[in-house]
Every structure is written in C-alpha cells, then in structure tokens.
Amino acid sequence: MLLAALPPGARGHVRAVGGDPTTALRLREMGVKPGTTLTVTARGASGSRIVSFGAARLAIDSATSALIEVEPT
C-alpha cells in the first residue's frame, strides 16, 4: 500500500522508497527510510500527508507520498 492511500490516524512501516535519486535522498535525510514506522497525523491540502515518526513531523505532498510504500500496522 502507498502512503498516499493511508488515512489519517493510520500507521505503517515503510517498506520501500521510490522516486528519483534526489527525492529519495531528501526523504532519507528527513528520516524516511525502510523500517521507519510512520503515523499519519493529518491530511493536508491537495492530498498531502502529515506524518510523524519519533518526535519529528513531516509534510509530504501527494505525488511524493505515492513514492513511499508502506505496510499498515
């Protein structure tokens, strides 16, 4: 399942991160990597996802959140 499809309140383990190398590196720098457990705390404008993991919060637009494959937990 893709992060873009994960509803607010749901949690998921990141399984894979796709996209071009720059985007993938930026996501990795911000802490999104296979194994991270994300919680979708809110849905933002235009289908973006607000996720939290650890004490960090991140906004990810809808196109980018469709690059992140998650396994709902």
Binding site: T41, A42, R43, G44, A45, S46, I50, S52, G54, A55, R57, A59
Partner: peptide, 26 residues
C-alpha cells in the same frame, strides 16, 4: 542516545488537525 517508543500526542498535533485541514487550513 535516543529512547525508543511511541511519541505522545501534543498540542501541535491537535492544532495541525485544524490548521492543515483541507477545508479549514485555507
């Protein structure tokens, strides 16, 4: 160095639910 575990929800999460909401955010 960092403890693991579930983060507590804080005021920020509750505010974001409103200020980032697709209908209320704008």
């Amino acid at each position: 160095a960092v403890p693991t575990g579930e983060p507590h929800l804080t005021l920020t999460d509750r505010l974001d639910a409103v200020l980032l909401n697709p209908w209320l955010g704008l």
